[in-house]
Design a protein around this nucleic acid. Structure first.
Lengths: 199, 199, 199, 199
DNA sequence: TATGAATGAGTATTCATTCAT
DNA sequence: CATGAATGAATACTCATTCAT
């Protein structure tokens, strides 16, 4: 048992030590040699703790994901309107420099998972999706509970996740105004008297 | 006097002759040698009509795109409800085997354009987006004109495109039910008495 | 006969129109397509007047050579000491921007003739050498006649040509001071009382 | 524990095993595939020990250079007149078949270094030049010490190197008699009573 | 005489992964 | 447990030259 614990610990150690490396280089330019050197171990050792390059990249991305999810989790409890929460949920990755770097990474990961259809790849993608979905669901449920949202929004998390995915992908285009597009979308979902029915 | 060749025509000829090849191999496994052989010309000849591999892949994809856009264009005139049109707009690529192949190609193209940020790549992506956007807009405008859609849906094409992108990307996930997700989304946009408020 | 004359005239026309092109691009980056376009004829036409790329490059270089030889020829008649004339003979290609461009071209030509041992290549190299040799001989002979040079310098043109070649080649090295090296060499050849016999 | 390899030793091993290959094919026709096969390693292994093709070509040429320099070094100690030593210094590469092969290689290298002005290329050229210069200086200094040469020949190594370069380059010309040209040059430098003033 | 469409050979380099020690 | 030396597949692109018209 102790050994297993150690393995997990070392996995984390290696992943943790390579966070900056991954952010700087991106997935495509990251080499096992760099990872090994940065982690201070031999190349062969990496393969003692990870199945392949993907595996270790997942582990590192997971640490970023944990951060982002944690931030998003806090968002749920913030004293904001539901709409505002949804807005922030979708724009959090576009906000500061750190978010941008994570975004770039996620886009790169998306690109890989779009072509490499390994089981582990899909599993990871799905787990990630589930985590984001859960938070979104919380926001929506609370919105409904607080009377800000109609009952029909229960179960709408899936749609919002899909839209978020599209937002992330289409943000690559030049002249794409995320805030504008997102607001237009939210206006569509939550028609307000002032907007929907201009006298 | 030398033969004067219609460059545009030959471009199309080459592109046309390589459609199957691209569908079978995908973008990543397509080689210039294969293209040349399939088109029945020398490798050098390819470069007389295309700037680089990207250029020719774009041209071939464009032929698929033209087909899909044409089908979508016909959709606009079909005697269907606006909602049904939007539904079909989003699912057309998921329908038959042919659509599936195009879908695979588009996903691969998306993956590439997500990481290779060349000017030509972005330009092509944007052009494609504009074409789809235009059709969507037609459907929406008509829906509004016919009174099926509220005025607020004018300009909603952007949101729908983004959702479609997300749909395409997330469709890679196992157990992802496109029809279900799309219906849920449309229900959200067009709350009907029967669906939204089941007595 | 008329046709032959025309051929020669057209050869010159083409060569003349491509002088700048060759100077800008160098031999290595010059393409037949560019030559044809610049000369305002078809690629095939080039081969009506020239045997191959080398042939046309020679023709163009020859026009430069003619210029340089003409300048050098003038040098012979200038009211300068023989030593000064020899100095200028060797440095003329290093002097102004124009000389530099010719120099670069000659170096490139030298590189080619060092590996491509075609008969035409050798012939051209030899012809060039002969032309420079003749001028050098004039300078030396005159120097001897005027009593500035000892009799033993008769026939020394060959040595000086070889040194010039070396100068041209070694000038590629960083920190190589042409003037210094050349002066040192000339001091060696023409020992002056102040330098050769101190005290 | 993994095997620790002496990188320098392996570099030499690979270089050594490819000497013949380089001499047979020349630089231009040498492929990495051939090098790897000849050295009995994989292509990737080559790049573990060399940065690029240039790097390995330099290393191989260096082994030839070491031989030639060693022979030249011995020349310094031979019981010959200074003039004879200088003569041999310049003709050593033209002597036997082996020298001829080295010469061909050097000419090819010269051709490349004349057009490819990379830093590493220049550095290598300069190092080589320095090594030959040093030996020449030894010969000259000794000649001066022994009273065979006038004091003015101190520092003349540079001029002689340049002449040697020219000799190497011009030797490509048909009908170029190295011995004759070199003797003419040496006669010029060392005027003897019998030669300079024939009664 | 002029043209320009067609051609096709030829090669360096990267890097995830393995396995002998 | 750890290591790091060895591996090898896979591919775009240029351009001088030809020859049918």
């Amino acid at each position: 048992m102790a050994i297993i614990v150690d393995k997990e610990a070392k996995r984390r150690d290696i992943a943790l030590s390579c966070r900056d490396l991954l952010q700087e280089n991106g997935i495509g330019n990251l080499t096992i040699a760099q990872i090994a050197q940065t982690a201070g171990v031999g190349k062969g050792t990496i393969y003692e703790y990870f199945d392949n390059k993907e595996d270790i990249v997942f582990e590192i991305i997971t640490t970023f994901l944990r951060e982002d999810l944690s931030r998003l989790q806090q968002l749920v409890t913030l004293p904001l309107s539901t709409r505002e929460k949804l807005f922030r949920f979708c724009t959090t990755l576009f906000e500061n420099e750190k978010g941008q770097k994570h975004l770039e990474l996620f886009k790169e990961f998306l690109a890989i998972s779009l072509t490499h259809k390994d089981a582990s790849m899909l599993r990871f993608s799905q787990q990630t999706r589930v985590a984001f979905h859960a938070i979104l669901e919380q926001i929506l449920d609370e919105g409904i509970t607080r009377g800000e949202l109609e009952e029909r929004f229960r179960g709408a998390a899936g749609s919002l996740i899909i839209f978020s995915t599209g937002l992330m992908v289409d943000s690559r285009l030049e002249g794409f105004d995320i805030q504008h597009e997102l607001n237009a979308f939210l206006d569509l979902l939550f028609p307000t008297p002032t907007q929907g029915t201009p006298s």
